[in-house]
């Protein structure tokens, strides 16, 4: 990594694995349940969070010396809410189609604990550049888990990926359905997201014993 110092590069890399926001920090679990029934929604949400967390972290970091500590949570909330609403309005005016897809996620982003969590834990105590990297890193780590979970839920639950019928048609009985395979309807229910996240956590901790708490 010529571009980034070793310490800075760790800000991007750690959240992807050993300090993942969902599986290790347990941030952003709620949206991991809500929008992983299909892959497309998970990707859209990941990109939105990447954008909001990257910029939000920078804004909070720049303001960190003037924010009164007594009301810092409220200030953080207002910053992220204002940011999301402005982006939403701009999209509605200039990219209406895209804004229709995203509108569902606006509320989910504002209340996403990963955003407040990173503001509070990192941006309030670090410079703008490092905060930006931290935001990008954590959003990527969040996105990776979301996309993995959504991949399995959409594939096993609906037999599709990004809406394409990769396993054949369940009603016409083509593809694997011709051999008696059935979609597992339970996979598209929210509880299965928890179970898939649980399996990821299990795999991750089996591979790296240092992550296991006593």
């Amino acid at each position: 990594m010529g571009l980034l110092s070793k310490k800075d590069a760790a800000l991007i890399k750690d959240p992807l694995a050993d300090n993942n926001p969902i599986t290790i920090q347990v941030l952003g679990i709620c949206s991991a349940l809500a929008i992983t029934a299909e892959l497309e929604a998970a990707i859209v949400m990941s990109v939105s969070v990447l954008f909001v967390l990257g910029i939000g972290n920078v804004v909070i970091s720049l303001m960190r010396n003037i924010i009164p500590s007594k009301i810092r949570i409220i200030v953080q909330l207002i910053v992220v809410a204002a940011l999301v609403i402005i982006v939403d309005q701009v999209l509605k005016a200039f990219a209406y189609e895209l804004s229709k897809t995203l509108s569902v996620f606006v509320g989910l982003i504002i209340t996403n604990c990963i955003i407040m969590g990173r503001f509070e834990a990192f941006a309030l105590g670090n410079g703008a550049w490092r905060s930006f990297l931290d935001g990008i890193g954590n959003a990527l780590g969040y996105g990776v888990i979301l996309i993995i979970v959504a991949f399995f839920r959409e594939l096993l639950g609906a037999g599709t990926l990004l809406g394409f019928k990769v396993l054949g048609d369940p009603i016409e009985k083509t593809g694997v359905y011709a051999f008696g395979y059935e979609n597992n309807g339970f996979m598209i229910m929210p509880p299965m997201a928890l179970i898939v996240v649980g399996i990821i956590i299990w795999v991750q901790r089996t591979r790296n014993k240092a992550l296991i708490e006593d």
């Binding site: 003037i66 009164p68 007594k70 009301i71 207002i78």
Partner: peptide, 22 residues
């Protein structure tokens, strides 16, 4: 930044700026 006056002024300024922007 810990004083009450500062906190209140900050909150007022924030509301005006963000409200105006939106």
């Amino acid at each position: 930044t810990d004083s009450n006056l500062y906190t209140i002024l900050f909150a007022i300024a924030m509301v005006v700026v963000v409200g105006g922007l939106l």
